[in-house]
Design a binder for these strands. Structure first.
Lengths: 221, 221
DNA sequence: ACTCCGATTACGGAAATCTGTAAGGACATC
DNA sequence: GATGTCCTTACAGATTTCCGTAATCGGAGT
């Protein structure tokens, strides 16, 4: 089993919870903790330089900001930086995130080894994940594997741009003006209307506000 | 110090974190855990009937629903029911809630003894709170006592409800109809307008869509 | 009792949204 | 070349949003 583990999680008590599970359920005792991304990175780099590297990183994704100014603000940046100095490190993300698209992105772009959803029954999930990753498996959360990926909606760049502009509170007329100024076509109000109406159908949204809320929830924005 | 404590928290690992802090930092070892409100209530009643009552309840407010059907769905109901059978029990709420109004309500209406915000530095807060409550004090969280409510926007339940309805794509007229059907006041279209306009000011939003996007990003919905 | 203040409510109007129909152009297929 | 389809654009009308003004009500206060 892994012997040296780094836990990066900003909430102290959640941090302690992970440590206790590693102690009691997995039998890992050499556990180092970090509450900030930068702190985690420094501990990691030092261990690597001292030739006593960590074998596993368990990290959250979101880190609350406070008085300490951080160069890294999210677990994603932390993972990228750590992978740069130790490509073969095992990484498990332990996060509230439950959106399949976002979780899949972590596996595809960051090559994480496992993902555990914060939740009611996270102990079993976390233990399974650690044991699976130790065996060399890639461990997806049950929440994602169960997902039937039938209803995937394909959004092109234009759709994404529209959604972003709408989420930023611009009216269709303002969007049209922007498009014309940038000489991007299509750029008629009528076409924008049609495009957005199509998105309504795709996402079963009743109006623009509903559409943006749905897309935000899906993590596409 | 307290010797027998009940911890009610639906997330297993957070639960473990509290237990570890009680063990390591406070020196309490007779700790019972519950992941559901009803479960907590039953453990509490049994201990009371067996003349081995708990001296302290540490509970979350929100409990996720799953396959187990619960008669109590929130920590508030749990507290009320427990106070009914053992009025002098000490109660500490450990919750994500950060709205001063809501926290004050807990002290005034439910007579809780302490409140700790889930957060980055919750260990010290929790330890202080337990020690204060043991001495007979009422321990408010620093977040409330500090009263630096400058850039904190106070949303009451009505505002949240409005935002949720808007994010679900309902028009103001539909919301008004719902409110009238449920006999919730205020329920005039004009007041809804005013309320939402105030939210526009608070969040510097240009329109409803923008508002919902901002609030979603802040994680308030 | 009095005023002051905030919340609620009513109403109106300009702007924006949403939903139709319809016409024109690009492009592939037969 | 004829045909059909898809995308773009124009326009029009009903609905909704957004933002004023103004009247009303209830509580809190010197």
């Amino acid at each position: 089993m892994f012997t040296k583990v780094l836990v990066a999680e900003d909430y102290e008590i959640a941090n302690q919870g992970i440590v206790k599970v590693l102690n009691d359920e997995v039998g890992i005792y050499n556990i180092h903790e970090a509450q900030y991304c930068d702190d985690a990175y420094l501990k990691f780099r030092k261990a690597h330089q001292d030739k006593e590297p960590f074998e596993l990183l368990i990290t959250d994704l979101s880190f609350k900001e406070d008085h300490k100014v951080q160069t890294r603000t999210s677990g994603i940046e932390l993972i990228q930086d750590i992978r740069n100095i130790q490509p073969d490190i095992n990484i498990i993300v332990y996060s509230q995130e439950s959106r399949p698209d976002k979780i899949n992105m972590l596996f595809q772009k960051l090559n994480i080894n496992g993902f555990v959803c914060k939740g009611q029954h996270a102990i079993k999930d976390l233990v399974n994940c650690i044991q699976g990753v130790y065996k060399g498996d890639t461990v997806l959360p049950t929440e994602v594997t169960n997902e039937n990926t039938d209803n995937i909606i394909n959004l092109d760049d234009f759709d994404i741009m529209l959604l972003e502009e709408l989420a930023d509170g611009f009216t269709k007329k303002e969007i049209v003006q922007k498009l014309k100024k940038q000489k991007i076509s299509p750029n008629s109000e009528s076409t924008i209307d049609k495009r957005v109406s199509k998105l309504f159908d795709d996402f079963k949204a009743k109006n623009t506000t509903h559409l943006v809320a749905i897309v935000k929830d899906l993590g596409l924005l």
